[in-house]
Design a protein around this nucleic acid. Structure first.
Lengths: 219, 219
DNA sequence: TTATATTTTAATCATTTGATTAAAATATTT
DNA sequence: AAATATTTTAATCAAATGATTAAAATATAA
């Protein structure tokens, strides 16, 4: 009857391609858009249904409840955000400096397309949405990364002055992510329009690695 | 009858001191706490009433509606946040570097006490809460400030390499504010507890001015 | 084609939630 | 103290909102 359609369909496997445009996927896409824009509390399931072009009952038929649908979207969002980070942080080939370049470049491109993701994730994490933080192994991911080892080495060799890897990580993430979180305010202050704002962000792809390097050496 | 009590009481003036502990002020304090923590959409007027230790009807008697109460809190929050900034940015006496030190120091202290303020403000501004951005003269405040003139001079004299004042402002705000926005995530990553996190933030009071200086000179 | 399973809808329910009302309690003025 | 004004409450309303149900429409299998 009301068994999770998702699991059923996934089991078929073969149809996976078709399902990308299926009703279920349509609902998820709509849910993603609305949740990202408004957050959990301000989102009405009716808005998701309307955005997906389906009946409200269908949403509950496929996902049982607003909360379950949200948990799926939240998990996918955090995963999507983290997996790129995980790849870069643990890449054997690249140097620390190259990793900084990659993170700046990848995330500025991602956030230019999806500027709501950071404030969505950080707001919901603050509300402890689904105790997600405790469930995911984010800690090990970052702390055991090659990125961190490289930072440690650079500190040992005296190439980086400030020894705390947290300051290093905070600075990188701050410079990349914050402008997108504050985008409406910053556009209000500057009078810049979206296109011009995005151009500023593109400049930061090159600037942030230079700045981070300067920060590392400064004392 | 249901005339705004606030205006009435303010007119008396003499009682202003007493009113700080009045019912109206108690409701506002509770509203501030709950709105800052949960945001407009997730806040229940009943929660505010409970937090204030009063009846729900009383909230509507004093403030007419959730939205009106919110608008007051939002305005006061933004004002409280901006006025310090305005003071520093337009101080005649201080140099650009001293302004950076002041902003870092003042806001790290403020946000250590009230870490929810940035994500609250920026979330609600993103929802265009009350079209607040258009109403407030934030643009002139920042763009016509002495801070900006000093930045311009420094660029002209070649003391600052990157000419865009927006990058400069973004970098400063990013380094100061972002860690508080991402605090739960960062604590999850690092395993640090609140006290240790706050110690890191205190370190940044001294570090950020050094880093900003390094950024300015880097090319 | 008929029968069965799946998908979708319209209508409705139950709860939550912002707001109101009329009356009670308290304070203030005369 | 009596009269009046102010503050607070309990009870209730109305709209919004998440969820369910039974039936209709559509697809799939026999």
């Amino acid at each position: 009857m009301s068994v999770n359609r998702s699991l059923y369909k996934m089991a078929k496997g073969k149809e996976a391609k078709k399902l990308d445009t299926s009703t279920e996927e349509k609902i998820k896409e709509a849910a993603r858009a609305v949740f990202h824009k408004k957050g959990y509390a301000a989102t009405r399931t009716r808005d998701i249904a309307a955005e997906a072009g389906i009946n409200l009952a269908l949403l509950n038929y496929y996902f049982r409840s607003k909360e379950k649908l949200f948990d799926i979207i939240m998990l996918e969002t955090v995963f999507g955000f983290m997996q790129n980070m995980a790849m870069v942080l643990n890449d054997e080939k690249s140097s620390l400096e190259e990793k900084v370049e990659l993170i700046a470049s990848n995330y500025i491109d991602l956030l230019t397309k999806e500027p709501n993701i950071p404030i969505f994730m950080l707001s919901e994490i603050r509300n402890n949405a689904g105790g997600l933080l405790e469930k995911l192994p984010i800690r090990q991911l970052v702390m055991n990364s090659i990125f961190f080892k490289q930072h440690q080495e650079a500190v040992a060799k005296g190439k980086i002055v400030e020894p705390s890897p947290m300051h290093f990580l905070m600075n990188l993430l701050s410079l990349v992510i914050f402008p997108f979180i504050a985008q409406p305010l910053l556009q209000g202050i500057s009078g810049l329009h979206e296109t011009q704002f995005n151009k500023l962000m593109q400049e930061r792809k090159k600037l942030i690695p230079v700045w981070v390097k300067a920060i590392m050496k400064s004392k």
